[in-house]
Design a protein around this nucleic acid. Structure first.
Lengths: 195, 195
DNA sequence: GACTGACCAAATGACTAAATTGGTCAATTC
DNA sequence: GAATTGACCAATTTAGTCATTTGGTCAGTC
């Protein structure tokens, strides 16, 4: 006896990954999952809820990738760096999010936008939790962790992706680390010139 | 005797500002400027060149706004801050760029995209020049001014605009300055915890 | 009672005729 | 005769129509 819900989930993931949100039809998913179209609606209220289920799974795996990037023997800022790079790398290297980004760009599908926003928010929350812990240990200056996490994420996106988009060539891991040190860790001001 | 070229420039600025690039027609510009359509083509090779002329003027005025924001009696980082805020404020408060941003968002007009890119590049160059000067005076740590300027601009956009877009409410000038101090000037690391 | 696929209203896309546009250039003006 | 113009043209865009597709339902099947 096959697990029909699992079949549907797997077929839906394949379809959203390959065709995106809009071009995924419930009929195609049903066909791929070897179930009748109506069956899907016994597990999920509508297409949106099915999509949410897939995206939730995606976020869960992304967080797992972040967990694995942490090495408790290493200094805080190095772990923060590894965690953020791991999640961005995860997001950037999975067909599902690539497809959704493309769909947002060329079709502007609102559902795809919301989904990507949730992924970003998940990264942000993860980083914010890291910062809160560091704040309690006195490893970082006093600040609002949520705001700092948001700025941090955008900073990484700028350095890792936006720079490449504008200048053609991607920065090396060392160059990225240098810029992060400069802006995030040490600050731009020369030691003798702190306000 | 009227200056026909000036008439055309003024009418074109009005039209691009109110209707955007695509919805601006050469006939409407000619009508507004009280000249024949053919006359425009004696001054500008095509619609694109006319648009460039308008945008060049815009960038020039934006740089002027930046110049005015500088107070040589004040410390470097404060001037850098004022310069960047002045240019972003200029860009964000002028109908011409607002209209173009909107057009890029809903129509994706390539010409409007390029124009906004040139505006951004102008801001970046201006900031890079400031950083170069500061570098020579030893006011900032050694770094690539072009890269730092790029990151700096994106950071400001994040703090001033992206934050508002995500959280509904805009940060106050003080909150913005705090975040800039934290990330740009001093660094996030607690004094006792520098790597 | 779990499951299905024919069925329906609503949304989408393909098609086309009509209108508009950027750009040219022969005629006109000063 | 230099400067200016608007009728004109090819090419693109638009608006409107209609056939197809889609998300979701539900009467019927196993």
């Amino acid at each position: 006896m096959v697990d029909r819900k699992q079949q549907v989930l797997e077929a839906a993931e394949r379809s959203f990954r390959i065709f995106g949100y809009k071009a995924t039809t419930m009929e195609k998913v049903a066909k791929d999952a070897n179930v009748g179209k109506g069956t899907i609606y016994t597990f999920f209220a509508d297409k949106e809820e099915l999509f949410h289920a897939i995206m939730e799974q995606f976020v869960l795996e992304m967080k797992k990738a972040a967990d694995n990037a942490i090495d408790h023997d290493r200094p805080f800022f190095e772990n923060l760096h590894r965690v953020l790079l791991a999640m961005l790398e995860f997001r950037q290297s999975h067909e599902l999010t690539i497809q959704l980004h493309y769909e947002v760009k060329v079709l502007g599908t609102p559902m795809a936008m919301e989904a990507l926003d949730r992924v970003e928010k998940a990264i942000c929350s993860y980083a914010a939790r890291q910062l809160e812990a560091a704040l309690e240990k006195g490893q970082i200056r006093p600040c609002d962790p949520a705001a700092a996490a948001f700025v941090l994420l955008k900073l990484y996106v700028t350095i890792v992706f936006d720079w490449e988009q504008k200048n053609g060539k991607r920065l090396t891991a060392d160059q990225i680390w240098d810029l992060i040190q400069l802006f995030v860790i040490d600050g731009l001001a020369a030691d003798g010139a702190k306000r």
